[in-house]
Design a protein around this nucleic acid. Structure first.
Lengths: 298, 298
DNA sequence: CTAATAGTGTCTGTTAGACACTATCTA
DNA sequence: TAGATAGTGTCTAACAGACACTATTAG
């Protein structure tokens, strides 16, 4: 095996020792982190909180797109895997490790960044709810959780449009886009276009509106057929909490009885119940990592 | 807006004019093309052909992994989008344009390629059946369609193993891997490992066994809930043909009546029937790009 | 007891799966 | 008419959706 020689008579070892990479221009590679969480919102008159979906954005400190909002991220170092870069960026921004992290898509248009050629791989990160204080990096004036909503507008042949709403807690920033998805002849999604809605005061930098849209689409799809939503819940949670998370991600109300029938095989009861509530207490559950076996298949 | 100045007092225009990219080392970026097609195979004794899934592989001409089989691909040029590079490579290898092309995943481990740091974005391409002659590029001794099969072996907690079989038409090359998929605590796929099976004579270069495995997984999933399979069929096809393609991709037999109930809303009848067959002739259909509207939703 | 929320039982309509049947062509 | 494949009808079990009901706490 080692003796195999190429046209120049070199073994693999010799070839690699002599190898010098060409001198052509290379792109910069970055990771973009779509960090989602859910947050409790106390609805007026009721005592059990609703959940809203939040996305972490930074305000850019410098040109290009100065002062505009962007998905946090950074360069992939030459001696670091792309996954590792994603994990590092996530830790730098949120101080969390060991959370759900999934590669989303790689964006490779030539003029995405006016400074230079940048290819960017986006990652979806889900961090469990509750009071995570994000940290603003060097390039950021601030890092803020934005409430995210996405509503389908219309659907005609080969087209689907969505409205995307992002707003900061105090409503000092409000971003609204219309996203149009195009389908091809064989019924598969091909391209998307984003368009800033006229009422909007703020905007997303680069092609980040597209990226946010894709992340939300993926999140919604995965909720339906994977246990991904448990990554947004604390270790122990009530089924009502879980239901609110599902409702937020899916964008529609669910029937309690049906939801519970579906979710029960995926969780195990704990000993604990909610305490000191002025109504029937609620059982706490945890996710059961072995639920696939029990229901076999899938 | 144009008047916005950064800390150095520069407008965006001035900033960009002065901007010089840093001198740090950048990775090379490549695309890997997973080109699939289906091919007719006449089963003994019967007249209607079965379909087998084929994947295009090249035999490497030089180190590293010299003489081993690999997924075709190439570098992304600095003035070319990643998608465009994928389309270009596909055209160079198969002479087809305008076929189904979907980004699969980006592979970013540091030592994927022993020559230098290479980040590679893989694409899934589906070309309609029938007699496509692949072309071997500069780096390839030959380009060959391999029959692909993937069979689930076992499933325990947090693990799933698959066997992967690839063989060339004349069986001069046979490649067999065992792929192990790992799940994390919240039930989501995290990593996969590949292991050459002992009976194998040939092997796949680099981390390509992982990539092939992911492509097959994605293909199987998408067949179930998108009309992706029609991209492997000619413009006009019989429902039996369509069923054979589905069976090949799903790896299990389907009931004719049930398959037809499911597929009929997605297709429209043509005027044509099969001719000169020694049995009842079969209607030709085409894919109906507007089927979503009719069944609304989804 | 009441308000509020947790949790269950059950009907219905739709769909997936299994299977058996009928139809139409050539030789 | 036989052989081969195309195409249909229908039963059943499982499941999703809708809704109404019961249970348990604090005050």
């Amino acid at each position: 095996m080692e003796e195999l020689r190429n046209r120049d008579g070199l073994t693999e070892k010799e070839f690699l020792a002599k190898y010098r990479p060409g001198n052509y221009e290379r792109p910069s590679v970055t990771v973009d982190m779509l960090v989602f969480t859910v947050e409790d919102v106390r609805p007026p008159g009721r005592s059990v909180p609703d959940k809203v979906l939040k996305l972490l954005l930074i305000r850019r400190k410098n040109h290009p797109f100065m002062n505009q909002w962007a998905i946090p991220g950074g360069f992939v170092n030459i001696d670091e895997s792309v996954d590792a870069a994603a994990a590092r960026e996530l830790k730098e921004e949120t101080s969390v490790e060991d959370v759900y992290l999934e590669q989303l898509y790689t964006w490779g248009e030539v003029n995405r960044d006016p400074r230079m050629r940048v290819i960017s791989t986006s990652y979806l990160a889900l961090v469990p709810g509750e009071g995570l204080k994000p940290r603003a990096g060097d390039d950021a004036a601030e890092a803020v959780w934005f409430t995210v909503r996405r509503e389908q507008q219309e659907e005609t042949e080969g087209l689907k449009t969505w409205n995307l709403f992002l707003e900061s807690r105090d409503r000092s920033a409000e971003i609204r886009y219309r996203v149009t998805e195009h389908f091809t002849k064989n019924g598969v999604l091909m391209a998307e276009e984003t368009q800033l809605l006229p009422e909007t005061r703020d905007r997303l930098a680069f092609d980040h509106a597209k990226i946010v849209n894709l992340a939300l689409e993926r999140l919604r799809n995965k909720v339906e057929y994977t246990p991904i939503a448990f990554n947004l819940l604390p270790e122990e949670f009530t089924l009502t909490e879980a239901q609110k998370v599902y409702e937020t991600l899916l964008g529609r109300p669910l029937f309690k009885a049906n939801f519970r029938k579906k979710i029960l095989p995926m969780v195990v009861e704990t000993e604990k119940k909610t305490e000191n509530v002025r109504h029937r207490p609620s059982q706490y559950y945890r996710f059961d990592p072995d639920w696939r076996k029990k229901n076999e298949g899938f």
